[in-house]
Write a protein that binds this DNA or RNA. Structure first.
Length: 618
RNA sequence: CGGGGAGUAGCGCAGCUUGGUUAGCGCACCUGCUUUGGGAGCAGGAGGUCGCGGGUUCGAAUCCCGCCUCCCCGACCA
């Protein structure tokens, strides 16, 4: 049999009863049937960028025909995209299995009840996809599966001898994101690998966590994905220790810091500044009230201090960092109650709302309104000082870690147009506690070594944390220990965004010409371009080469399209991004083909006979 | 949810201000011929409820009202 291009073929696998579809190409060996042919591959590359894609990976994945948008926040995987996806999934699965995790699979469509028990039916709010079945029962599309994993283990296990247990699944998750964006990076439907460890005690949990951390390092290394492991906040999940794997990419939504000197790295939300060392204050003069008209802001206050000769410092001019700014807000508790909170920070610092929320969770900071001022007459807007704050005054007062015992401050005197100078922390006032929620700036001090911090953005590709007993307690997951006592199991929870990884890898590897896949996850190892007229020697030679390559266990994508000019084929080869491009063209007359490295752009003419060896040893 | 931008053929866009032949251009697609190492040429085609609903008008892609969707920034996000 031959097809219209004169290629030898073998009958379709589905047999004569399935007359439609192109015949499978002939191949000699087991492997050869897998040659991907661009002439029949279900793909269409676009010359122009889609208008609705901004982020480079999104743009190129659509342009190269890997994915298509099918729903708000939902994408269809085309054959090439699905191959990449499956390769990513395969690497993750292999590393999970190798690390000793066992794969299970839950439904994505779940009843309300377990999520009611954990409290997340309400806590998750609008992000949860809810629906009713025909009987009117509440159901949900699972955003994550902690509840089900916990219940499953409770269902089957009841002895310490069964632990530790490590299980995982790779499952589609659903979240009604307010704003899906950047293609696969934030969708409303996405695939996640989530795994859980179950241990009898904290030492076991720590061991499980460390093993998992190692497995993630191996996984992301194999995926060819650059990443930084950063300290993270555990958020609503509770738990003591939590780290994120961030791919450092501008398209990312997370902001993190890295130290120039040491290996400190943390999500900006999770940075914890060290508490400043106490300063001796035995010889400090008494605090002095100043008449400071028209100084409702830090800037106006500093100007006034520097304008008055009687207040001049001997060492240097006054700066904003010498002032203590007291920021008021109301904190709404989960029960609905609003309580006032004041936070004292050096005047040159601003509060970071995200960091603040992370620290106040589950409380929610709200602005301090005019009505709130009216309800607290002792608080004078623009002139608030520690004297009117603190639990004794009904306003909880937390200060920045830089406000060390013995440090001296200019701050509000709680009267219009008055400030107080030389107020000594620990002598003249005491806060109710510390809070570290100021904006982290590029160049700030590293909390670990004092070096300079650098800020960057990243995509959260993995998150590991020690969940602890929150879910085990909620669902009564206990086992009997060696003494026959009921003990609550402690859990770890670990996630990798599988579909997100595809976009992150694309984003991390692409260049001006197109996608540029790492070998481990590329749809094919070699892209063979036939640059010759139909009927020319190039066609049969390239066909033979493709089969040879397959036999040598290389995965081949063959551009056997007829009537497509070489320029188009080259551009498509670069756009599609296989690691190696082999051009069978005019050099063939001399027995040569051109081998190109997609990433470096390096090209060399090699004898046809050497190609297989060259490509398979790359 | 707040702010900004945009919905016209598979993709990218023009037309709208000032209503009026059969809604246009490039790419992609189909047929034929030519071409074949960097997104080919010529000729001929197919493809559109102009986001949806209502209104104004003799007449609406164009004007008015309502809604929906998409993109960006922010808020939100185990």
């Amino acid at each position: 049999m031959t097809n219209q291009n004169g290629q030898a073929t073998i009958p379709s696998r589905t047999g004569p009863s399935a007359p439609r579809g192109p015949p499978l190409p002939t191949t000699t060996a087991l492997y050869g049937a897998c040659v991907l042919r661009l002439s029949t591959l279900f793909v269409r590359t676009l010359r122009e960028d889609p208008a609705d894609a901004e982020v480079p990976s999104h743009r190129l994945l659509v342009r190269a025909g890997y994915i298509r948008r099918a729903a708000p926040g939902g994408f269809t995987w085309l054959p090439l995209g699905w191959m990449v996806y499956r390769n990513v999934e395969r690497v993750i699965r292999e590393e999970m299995d190798r690390a000793g995790f066992q794969e299970v699979h839950f439904p994505a469509l779940l009843p309300r009840e377990p999520y009611e028990t954990s409290g997340r039916w309400t806590e998750y709010g609008d992000s949860l996809f809810r629906l009713k079945d025909r009987r009117g029962n509440d159901m949900l599309m699972a955003p994550t599966h902690e509840e089900l994993f916990t219940l499953l283990v409770k269902d089957l296990y009841s002895s310490y001898k069964d632990l530790p247990l490590w299980i995982y699944q790779i499952q589609t998750k659903y979240r009604d994101e307010a704003r899906p964006r950047a293609g696969l990076l934030r969708g409303r439907e996405f695939v996640m690998k989530d795994s859980y460890s179950f241990d009898i005690d904290d030492a076991g949990l720590d061991e499980s966590y460390q093993q998992h951390r190692k497995a993630y390092i191996r996984t992301f290394d194999r995926l060819g994905l650059p990443y930084v492991i950063v300290g993270a906040v555990s958020g609503a999940m509770g738990g003591s220790h939590s780290e994120e794997f961030l791919a450092p990419l501008d398209a990312g939504e997370d902001e993190f810091v890295r130290c120039e000197n040491c290996d400190y790295a943390a999500n900006t939300e999770a940075v914890q500044m060290p508490v400043a060392a106490p300063v001796p204050y035995d010889d400090a003069p008494a605090a002095k009230v100043l008449d400071t008209p028209d100084t409702p802001t830090i800037a106006t206050l500093v100007d006034l201090l520097n304008a008055r000769d009687d207040l001049a410092r001997s060492d240097r001019p006054w700066g904003a960092a010498d002032t203590l700014k007291n920021v008021l807000m109301m904190v709404r508790q989960p029960d609905g109650e609003r309580r006032p909170l004041a936070i004292g920070v050096p005047g040159d610092r601003e509060l970071d709302l995200k960091r603040l929320e992370a620290q106040l969770h589950p409380g929610e900071p709200q602005p301090f309104t005019e009505e709130d001022f009216a309800a607290h007459p002792s608080l004078v807007k623009g002139y608030i000082g520690p004297g009117a704050l603190g639990e004794a005054n009904g306003v909880r007062y937390l200060v920045d870690p830089r406000v060390a015992d013995g440090s001296r401050w200019v701050t509000g005197a709680n009267a219009k147009s008055a400030h107080v100078a030389g107020l000594v922390a620990g002598r003249d006032f005491n806060a109710d506690g510390m809070i570290d929620a100021t904006v982290i700036a590029d160049g700030d001090q590293c909390p670990a070594c004092g070096g300079r911090l650098r800020i960057a953005r990243g995509v959260e590709i993995g998150h590991i944390f020690q969940l602890g007993r929150k879910y085990a307690e909620a669902f009564g997951l206990t086992v009997l220990d060696a003494d026959g006592k009921q003990v609550t199991v402690t859990m770890g929870s670990y996630g990798i965004g599988v579909s997100r990884c595809v976009a992150a890898i694309a984003e991390a590897t692409l260049d001006d010409l197109g996608l540029c896949w790492p070998a481990a996850i590329a749809p094919a190892d070699v892209h063979v371009v036939i640059a010759g007229k139909p009927g020319s020697d190039q066609f049969p030679a390239a066909e033979a080469l493709a089969v040879e390559l397959e036999a040598a266990r290389a995965r081949v994508l063959l551009d056997d399209r007829v009537g497509v000019s070489p320029g188009v084929k080259f551009a498509d080869a670069e756009l599609l991004g296989m690691p190696t491009i082999v051009v069978v063209g005019r050099g063939l007359a001399d027995g040569l083909v051109e081998v190109r490295d997609r990433r470096s752009g390096e090209r060399s003419d090699v004898p046809l006979d050497d190609v297989v060896a060259l490509v398979t040893t790359r």
